[in-house]
Amino acid sequence: MAVEMILESLSEGKSIENLLEAYPRLSRDAVLAALSFAADALKGEKIYPVAV
């Protein structure tokens, strides 16, 4: 299961338990790793203000 799919499912309101039931080969550690990966990816982004 892709990180993107895990994040989308969680953002739609599904719980980790819902994901684990729907995807028996998925582990809680894998879901937490996906969240950690996303957090690390965002840390590296730079935000530049734009005048409107």
Rank of each mutant, 00 (worst) to 15 (best):
E17H: 09
M5V: 08
S27P: 09
V3P: 01
A39H: 11
L42K: 09
S27M: 06
E17L: 08
I16A: 02
K14I: 05
S27E: 04
L19G: 04
D40T: 09
E12Q: 03
K43P: 00
S15W: 14
S9T: 04
F37L: 10
A38Q: 02
G44L: 12
A38S: 04
L10I: 08
K46G: 15
V50G: 01
V31K: 11
L7M: 10
D40K: 15
A2Y: 03
A41I: 14
L20W: 12
S11G: 01
K43Q: 14
S27L: 02
K46I: 15
K46L: 12
E4R: 09
A41T: 04
A30L: 07
E21K: 03
I6F: 11
L10H: 06
F37A: 13
V52D: 13
A34L: 02
S9I: 07
E12S: 07
V31W: 07
A41N: 11
G44E: 00
L32K: 10
L7W: 05
L32R: 14
G13V: 08
K43C: 14
R25N: 03
L19I: 08
G44S: 10
Y48M: 01
L35S: 02
R28M: 07
R25I: 07
Y23T: 06
S9E: 01
Y48W: 05
Y23Q: 05
I6W: 13
A51P: 02
A33Y: 00
K14Q: 13
L7G: 03
I47E: 08
A51Y: 15
S15H: 12
A41H: 14
L26A: 03
E45K: 10
A22S: 00
S9M: 03
I6E: 09
K43G: 14
S15K: 14
L7D: 00
I47M: 03
K14S: 12
Y48D: 09
A30W: 13
R25C: 01
R25L: 08
N18D: 09
E45I: 01
L20F: 07
E17N: 06
S36D: 03
L35F: 08
E17R: 00
V50F: 15
A38L: 09
S15C: 11
A38K: 09
I47F: 15
P24I: 07
A39E: 15
S36P: 03
S36V: 06
A41M: 14
V31L: 07
A30M: 00
A41V: 07
L32S: 14
V52A: 15
A2H: 11
A22E: 00
I16S: 08
I16P: 03
K46R: 14
I6S: 00
I6L: 10
R25A: 00
Y48L: 07
A34I: 10
V52G: 09
M5K: 13
M1I: 13
S15I: 04
K46Y: 13
I6G: 06
S11F: 06
I6D: 05
